[in-house]
Design a protein around this nucleic acid. Structure first.
Lengths: 194, 194
DNA sequence: ACAATAGCGGAGGGATACCTCCGCTACAAC
DNA sequence: GTTGTAGCGGAGGTATCCCTCCGCTATTGT
């Protein structure tokens, strides 16, 4: 059980074949990550190209529409996140769940605007959502089986709660931690903390 | 106790004196509310003026900077929210608190981007925050006194949690309700629901 | 080494946004 | 009614963005 043997569904981005093209592709993705995190989804594509050190034409060849770029950035992030589910497999049920959610927050925090934009009209994004579910849902199931988490809790709701907490802006990191703990107390079975 | 006699701190926006000016001011505020809710803080000011049916010059006279407009929209909203605290005064402690928070969500939901923008560098926004605290904090205090809410809960944390829940995007209204209930369970004293 | 070609960059046209400035309008006070 | 003036509107200069197009370059396969 500490070694999951099934193949986790991958939601990888299709990268170009030629070496220089692949280099540019990655640079663009990285630059887009930065720009969108800083300026939100309305960030300028020209700025993205500029920061990636490539021509604007190259950006448009790789990502014909703005949505394509959002999608690529997001999918790439989710892919990384899914893989971290393995890292927490050895922890006790409740700890594994919360640890993963903590990472989840870390990954998502800077992506609020992208997430919002994609949620608005999610066409093909479903698969990355499914992949994330496949990674996280077993963690909740395990915590429920061990009696740590409420049995009537849906994974989708839990995730939504955590996303909300992650997206909010806090006075300091300490408050973020407290609020998350508060939120997770609602997910825990039995009595809350003293 | 059901009739609070103290004067609630007001955070009103200073409106112009002349009749036509006041008309334009209000139209601008209303239009800004709409545009920012639809397009986020990067919405065009020219679109705001257009929708308000006034010249762009009038917009800039009333709100010299973009921040001024954000601020006015936000403060106006908070002002309305604070007043609803009276409406729930007659309910039992816990119900009063949750009812107010529900309204809070209703008011805030469409303002996520403004809130974010203002939080980033809040200079004079503090007073409206204080006014909101003055309106909501007693409700929590009452729920704590009656033993319904956790004694170790800070109002700021609770509010932040609710803001997070409010800002998230949900599949449907039903899910939003469930997630909020889940979050509030963490704030409740003693054991959670069965 | 060489050729074929996938991929590059950025000039440029059209659209829109920001913000200022100033002649004109209509409100308010008398 | 008259009149002084607060307030109006929008033209227009500048800046930026989006996106296309095409001559050039670098990579890959032989």
């Amino acid at each position: 059980m500490s070694e999951p043997t099934f193949v986790r569904p991958r939601v990888a981005v299709q990268r170009p074949h030629r070496a220089d093209a692949r280099r540019n592709f990655d640079a663009l993705l990285e630059a887009a990550r930065e720009v969108f995190a800083e300026q939100g989804t309305s960030g300028s594509l020209e700025e993205v190209a500029r920061r990636a050190g490539v021509g604007i034409g190259t950006l448009y060849r790789n990502f014909p529409t703005r949505q394509d770029l959002f999608h690529a950035v997001y999918v790439d992030e989710i892919d990384q996140l899914c893989q971290t589910a393995d890292d927490v497999a050895d922890l006790p049920p409740w700890d594994a769940l919360t640890a993963w959610l903590q990472r989840f927050i870390g990954y998502i925090a800077t992506k609020r605007s992208i997430l919002e934009e994609l949620n608005r009209d999610s066409p093909m994004l479903k698969e990355s959502k499914e992949a994330m579910y496949a990674a996280g849902e077993p963690l909740l199931a395990r915590a429920q089986a061990s009696g740590d988490a409420r049995a009537d809790l849906a994974f989708a709701d839990l995730l939504q709660l955590v996303i909300g907490v992650a997206n909010a802006t806090y006075a300091d990191e300490e408050q973020r931690r407290r609020v998350l703990a508060l939120a997770l107390d609602g997910a825990r079975a039995g009595r809350s903390t003293a």
